[in-house]
């Protein structure tokens, strides 16, 4: 009986914490660290954003998928911090319910994407990045559609993407 009660309580507490970012639950020290640049956008703000008139189709897609989010949190530590130590510490502290989605390594950056997925639903997508003089942790939480997000990423007018598309064009010639 005691066990059941404990279990029940634990479940309820976990349930209660559901709608919070990992940054809030596990990395509150980052959130309160004044030397970091911290950005927080709430569900409420996303709801307001959803009412904005989109400038173009790309923005429309972005607004649409963003309106389903519970929040976005970004932590940026600049050159005054030790990005490597921060990165390693962050990876160590991540609960193991986070699965690695993608890792990108090049000479000056190390980026890891992780998701918290349950029953086929992604509840949180986080990106942890270590640069030469920068550490970034980004958390998207709520009802996340990975397809949607990668579609948006593709659409975003990024140099890399342009290059890729150019390559594609060359190929067709």
């Amino acid at each position: 009986m005691k066990k059941i009660i404990t279990l029940f309580t634990a479940l309820l507490i976990v349930g209660a914490m559901n709608a919070q970012s990992i940054i809030t639950t596990e990395f509150s020290d980052y959130e309160t660290n004044e030397s970091f640049t911290r950005v927080s956008i709430s569900k409420k703000m996303f709801e307001i954003i959803a009412n904005l008139d989109p400038d173009d189709a790309e923005e429309k897609d972005l607004i649409e998928s963003v309106s389903k989010l519970d929040g976005l949190k970004i932590i940026v530590a600049d050159s005054s911090e030790n990005p490597k130590a921060l990165f390693d510490d962050t990876m160590k502290r991540l609960p193991n319910r986070f699965e690695e989605l993608m890792t990108v390594n090049d000479e000056d950056e190390h980026i890891v994407f992780l998701i918290d997925e349950k029953d086929g639903r992604v509840k949180e997508l986080i990106m942890v990045m270590k640069g030469d003089d920068e550490f970034v942790m980004l958390s998207l939480f709520g009802d996340i559609d990975l397809k949607e997000i990668s579609k948006i990423s593709r659409q975003m007018n990024i140099d890399h993407m342009d290059k890729l598309e150019n390559l594609e064009d060359d190929d067709e010639d």
Binding site: I48, I49, L72, D106, I111, F113, S153, R154, I158, H160
Partner: peptide, 18 residues
């Protein structure tokens, strides 16, 4: 907020595409 969200997505896009 939207501009910042865009920036965040752009940041992810760079990484994704990389």
């Amino acid at each position: 907020a939207l501009a910042e969200t865009k920036k965040a997505f752009a940041m992810m896009a760079v990484a994704f595409n990389k």
